[in-house]
Every structure is written in structure tokens, then in C-alpha cells.
Design a protein around this nucleic acid. Structure first.
Lengths: 200, 200
DNA sequence: GGACTGACAGATATTGAAATCTGTCAGCCG
DNA sequence: CGGCTGACAGATTTCAATATCTGTCAGTCC
């Protein structure tokens, strides 16, 4: 609403877009709405983003990157064992997703729709996350805590096996009562599979 | 189309419903269509199924049960070790789902929509499948091949961890090139986690 | 008498005309 | 200039009238 006569930057447009998406949802959020929220004409928005799809892509990338960055801090925590870091990383990912989905279900649904449209950005995001996982697992392999001939493939396996706890298409299940126990059971099984000496 | 003057049975209605769903999809399949396909008035269909939802439920249950029955044969195969049975069972489940999704994508999408509506039937189906898994894992625990304090909870964990390879919301990914390797990697990790003496 | 029909009321879906949106661009304004 | 506007063409969405569907039931027909 405030036409804030500052310069029109891509950043300001992205912020306004997020706000419009939060208010109107993905289907009804138009670039005219975004321009109106900024007090400019929609032509100006097209100066910064070639198409509506590009704008949606940029705003989604920003949203996904916020999660990546939170997780990146766990990967290199030198004071924790690889197993602890793996457990932390998976728990934090699950908690972050569940938090996003629970806090503002509308906005979460919005981004779920957006990520469905935007194959490329999502693919990069997943590559980023499995890359982080690979570093933890490789560290574990180096220290002898984990045992796998191919940390990268194993990282993807761990990521896929925990999909129920971070993939948006399972968001509905994240509020069911037994979900935490289920998460623990899956992580336990995976950690046992990764460890050289399980069953202790 | 053929008014087949046989008696109108629930079974015949279910067959006609499946055909109408295959042709028209879930959104456009009406009970008037089903009646027309059978050469009767739609009032007659309501004699056998109280509501359209009940009809959809019955036809979906039939469809889900076909998968359950195929898998049930693997559970008690006396000539195979529990680990082999576990691998067989998971592979067969994946193959069956992928086959259904690939063969007739329209029909698969139709049933995916239906299962989304019908919480109860699907929940029963999942309970049935995890029950089968529990029996395999319990057999493995008894023979010393597997090691878990709670076969039922572990069965659910295995089922959830392999969700990417049987949950319809991942159907799109079942045609991607690396999917078989990914499946093997996840199963490998889980079997290792279940086994008392892995890493050999 | 019991399976079936077909007309009916209320709910839901389809349709097409009108409104809005996307993306462009010639021109304005500081 | 260089960022911005606003009118425009074609594509998409909305909305209300119209048609179809769901579920019921009194009545038909064998």
C-alpha cells in the first residue's frame, strides 16, 4: 500500500510478491496486484522480471534457499559426530518443513503449487540438499562411523527414504499423532544401515 | 452399450463403473453414465449402492485389493529366506504400481483422485500391506536374520521409507532413468539396517 | 411382490459473454 | 538518456444463466 518512493529493486518486488502470494494465494496473485502493492505500474515489474513465471521462480528460489541455509550450518559442525550431525540435519529439515506447513498453511500450499510448476529450481534445491547430506555421510565414512562405497548415492537413498518427512506431498500426514515415532523409527533404521557395527 | 438382459448385480455395476471411469475420468464419470452403459435407469444403480460415493468406494476397494492379493502370495513363500521375501515383496509392490501407472496413466490418475477422497478404504489398504510386511519381518526376527524389538513398528518404517516407490504422489518419478538404482540403494540400506550382521 | 422406471427438487457442472490479466512498446518526465 | 507509464492485442479468468446430475419415491410391469 505505501508507494514508498524508494528505487524499485528486484528485492522490493520479491518482497511484495511474497506478500501478495500470502494474501491472495497462487492462483489469484497477479503481477498487476504486485505492481499495485508497490504503487507502480505493472510495466515496471516487467523491467525486472521478463515474465510472470520468472518472478514466481525467483520468489520460490528465495523461499527454498532459506531452508538450505539453515541446514548448511549443521553440515560442518565440528563439535559433533557425523551420526549426530546426520540426525540433527534430518530432524531440522523435518522440523523446518513441518513448521512452515503448520504456521501458514495457505502460504505453504502456495509454494507447493509453485514448486510443482518449477521443475528446474526445485531440482537444484534437491541437489543442494543431497549435496549437504553427502558431505555428512562422506565425513562419517572417512572417520569409520559409516560404511558405504558411494556416499553420494547413499545420501540420495537417505534423502529419498525420509521423503515422507520433508516432501510437501506428505504435508497432510505431518500433523498425525504418531508421526514423530515414525520419523525416529525410519532414522534409526537408516543410521543402523549406515553404521559399520549396528545391533549394539 | 449392450443392455445385456442378465440380472443387475453389484458386480456388473462395478465392472461398468470401472469402464466408465476409464473412458471419462473421475470428474466426468456420473452414475447416469454407468446406468446408460448398463442399459438401465440410474435409479436401479441406487438400489445396489446407496450413494455415488459408496459406488466409488467399492470400485476403489476392488482395485486396491487386486494389489494386496498379488503381494500376499509372497509373504508365506516357504522356500525363500525372510530377506529374499522382503526384497521380493518390495520389488513386486514397486513393479505393480509402476506397471499400473505406466500402462494406463489416465486410469491410474483416476484412482489416485479416488484414493485421495476415500480416507477410510485407503487406510485399511495400508494397514493390510504393513500387516503383510510385519509378517515377513517377524519371520526374519524369529529366524535371527533380522533384529528388531518391534516388528510391526519396523514394518511401518520400511513401508514409509520406500514410499517414494509406491506412493501415487511420486508416480511422476517412476519413469526417470535412475529410479531402479535408487530403489536398490534404499532397499539395500534398509536390509542392512534390519540385519544383525551387516557390512560384510 | 419385488425389481425397475422416470419425474422431481435441490445441488453441481457447463458454457459463453464480459472482465481481467499478461507481455509489449511508443512516448513521457525528471 | 533511463526508469517509468499507460494503452493495447491476445490469452486467460470470472460470473451468471443454463443444463446436467444426485438421490428420492410413487407408481409400473412382469
Amino acid at each position: 500500500m505505501p508507494p514508498t518512493s524508494e528505487t524499485l529493486t528486484a528485492e522490493r518486488i520479491l518482497e511484495a510478491t511474497e506478500e501478495v502470494l500470502r494474501r491472495h494465494g497462487p492462483a489469484k496473485a497477479t503481477v498487476v496486484d504486485v505492481a499495485r502493492a508497490l504503487g507502480v505500474s505493472h510495466g515496471s515489474v516487467y523491467r525486472h522480471f521478463r515474465t510472470k513465471a520468472a518472478l514466481r521462480e525467483a520468489v520460490t528460489k528465495r523461499w527454498l534457499d532459506r531452508t538450505s541455509q539453515r541446514l548448511a550450518g549443521i553440515v560442518d559442525a565440528a563439535d559433533r559426530t557425523p551420526e549426530q550431525r546426520l540426525r540433527d540435519w534430518l530432524s531440522t529439515l523435518f522440523a523446518a518443513k513441518r513448521h512452515k506447513a503448520g504456521d501458514d498453511p495457505e502460504l505453504f500450499a502456495t509454494y507447493t503449487v509453485l514448486t510443482d510448476e518449477l521443475g528446474g529450481v526445485v531440482h537444484e534445491h534437491l541437489a543442494d540438499l543431497t549435496g549437504q547430506l553427502t558431505r555428512i555421510i562422506a565425513a562419517g565414512t572417512a572417520s569409520g562411523a559409516f560404511h558405504t562405497p558411494d556416499p553420494s548415492a547413499t545420501a540420495r537413498a537417505v534423502f529419498h527414504a525420509t521423503g515422507r518427512f520433508h516432501d510437501p506431498c506428505h504435508a497432510r500426514e505431518w500433523t498425525s499423532p504418531g508421526i514423530d515415532a515414525e520419523f525416529e523409527a525410519v532414522v534409526e533404521l537408516l543410521v543402523r544401515g549406515l553404521s559399520r557395527e549396528p545391533g549394539r
